[in-house]
Design a protein around this nucleic acid. Sequence first.
DNA 1: CTGAAAGCGCTAACAC
DNA 2: GTGTTAGCGCTTTCAG
Lengths: 391, 391
Amino acid sequence: MQRATGRGAAAAAPRSVDVARLAGVSQKTVSRVFNDEQYVSAEVRRRVLEAAEELGYRRNNAARALASGRTRAIGVVTLGTALYGPASLLMGVERAVRDNGYALRVVNTVEGDPAGVAGAVGSLLDQGVDGIVISEPIDERGRADTQDPQDTQATQDTQATQSRRDRQDAADEGRRRQEAGGSTRLRVDVPVLVLSAPSPVVAPSVLTAGHGADRMARVATEHLLRLGHVTVHHLAGPQRWYAARDRLEGWRTALMTHGASVPPVIEGDWSAASGYAAGRALAADGDVTAVFAANDDMAIGLIRALTEAGLRVPQDVSVVGFDDIPVAAFVTPPLTTVPQPFDAVAQEGLRRLVHVIENPEAPPLPASDPPADLVVRASTAAPPVRRNRAR
Amino acid sequence: MQRATGRGAAAAAPRSVDVARLAGVSQKTVSRVFNDEQYVSAEVRRRVLEAAEELGYRRNNAARALASGRTRAIGVVTLGTALYGPASLLMGVERAVRDNGYALRVVNTVEGDPAGVAGAVGSLLDQGVDGIVISEPIDERGRADTQDPQDTQATQDTQATQSRRDRQDAADEGRRRQEAGGSTRLRVDVPVLVLSAPSPVVAPSVLTAGHGADRMARVATEHLLRLGHVTVHHLAGPQRWYAARDRLEGWRTALMTHGASVPPVIEGDWSAASGYAAGRALAADGDVTAVFAANDDMAIGLIRALTEAGLRVPQDVSVVGFDDIPVAAFVTPPLTTVPQPFDAVAQEGLRRLVHVIENPEAPPLPASDPPADLVVRASTAAPPVRRNRAR
DNA sequence: CTGAAAGCGCTAACAC
DNA sequence: GTGTTAGCGCTTTCAG
């Protein structure tokens, strides 16, 4: 392909040689200036910058990537939903990626698509990225420990430049997943960060962050227990989501730790509508005095159903949500809920991911647990002295 | 840079020549197969695909971009907020971009950042994209027609291929913004699609889509008027947002068309908290019987304040929201609101953007207006017969 | 401190 | 139908 030259047509974009010519230096020197390398005299640097500015020069990223083997981009796999949690996390990731000097490439997985995460990761690998963030993956099959041949597979390839840890992983052939059907294998040869879930892929370097919703769920449940409720019901999120399972686990742990009975779980789909449906069922059960909903939307739907059934929140039934969505403080009654530290999780995760990308030889940075807070508002109170039936 | 070769170390990623060698064809033929070009015999194609699969071959996108001058990527500039509207629009854009066979690159603008949209667009241009989507840009200075030297600048190259509407924009030299400080100008030399706002940049080809919130706001306001309200108050969004101005405009138009008085506007910041504050002020005004809030979050905060002040919604005051967020149907009372056609806007916008990218010479595709619906729930009703003071 | 030469892996003409 | 030849605009050696 020849550079466009026709007059009349917009001039082709200036290249580094053009800048070099104008500044009276070699092309390599221009490259040095733009890469902030040392050993360039201040005078030359100034001249180069000036020439570049005059020409409106902009580095060609494709050429850079081709020559250097690095894209300076990080890909993120998201769920393609505008739900408050995932959307907030994505925004946090964008900011963290940018703060670290990388560009962001986004691919959504379509819920229900069998290719799922594997397909999205593949597409990112096609585009070229130096690292991948998988945000809140779901597992079409259900439980985390399920062996799922349809799930993401990955073979791996050690490079000469892998870290200790990577080499270990690479050596661990047992981890290598064989494709069930025998079609192509997905090679993930860049570091991966998995947010709010255990890793669904095997890659040279896998980090996880924000996988602590269980602790937060425990705090929420214990708040209710401490208020005097005999036990706490749980309106769970769809169990394909690791995030939903985490919360359920935390709830169960809290109940068991406190010797409370573990009532059957109701599973919603994160929507207020599903919370509403669950609320109608729960309202029929006179024993229910406290419910921990896996997100605020469901909690709001739940409260509406309870209210319509003539139950007062919190006098008759206490409800705790999860997320602390923007309207949580303004619904009726204002919702007691657990705020999620999306930005903190994204920031810390990215700091660690970038560290691995840029220092493959160095030991990975340690992870730290995000805080588990609770915002107490007006949807929770002590249980009613006694309702219609004795327990 | 040399390809890694050490034995023991994993082989470097396979290239098309490797595939060619294995398949016993030329490298160009491999390229043909992967680009779905014609004139490749079925037999050869099969052999190539097989060899590629065996090697785990993956095209190098940087090389492709460098050689072809096309990145097959579209960049989107977003606001970096998890607000329901912007987040939904982003998801719609992602899907539309992917459906069109492009990759997505995302850059957020930081609200309040002077570089703003210009900086984000520049970063996208650095990365290399074939087209840019600017989603709900805001204008730090306020009104749309304000001359803002700090805002996005762009030089333009009108092409012979503009639509009527686009050509108008481009021809309108008055809109061309000169840089205040005299530093470099931002050259946007790829087509741009601006969502839910008039264009803040001048580029060779500028399209707009989803810029019809005024019609929807009009419908919302008229619903209230038709219910018998003498006038309708407006709780506006921050006026730096074009989306907020559009809604205000639609509201005002509806009032004027119907000969209703135009009460002073209260400006919120999209948050439920700001809606709550506005609600307290409005509650003190005995004449208020109907309020159109520029989004649902504010409407919810507003309703809470009204309720706390002893006013019943909708018996004393009717409230209409905007967006139809997931919980809108489940708050108390269920909210009458205007759903936004995010996916439709994104899809149509992208279809047109991709058309311009791939057929620069052809006339642009026509835009179509999205529908303006209204979901009537329980937050609106006829005004009270009369309240404390006569009008 | 600076420069020359050699690719990175692919697509784009143009032969055959 | 298929192969050959040149680059795309950088970064990377390796010389000075």
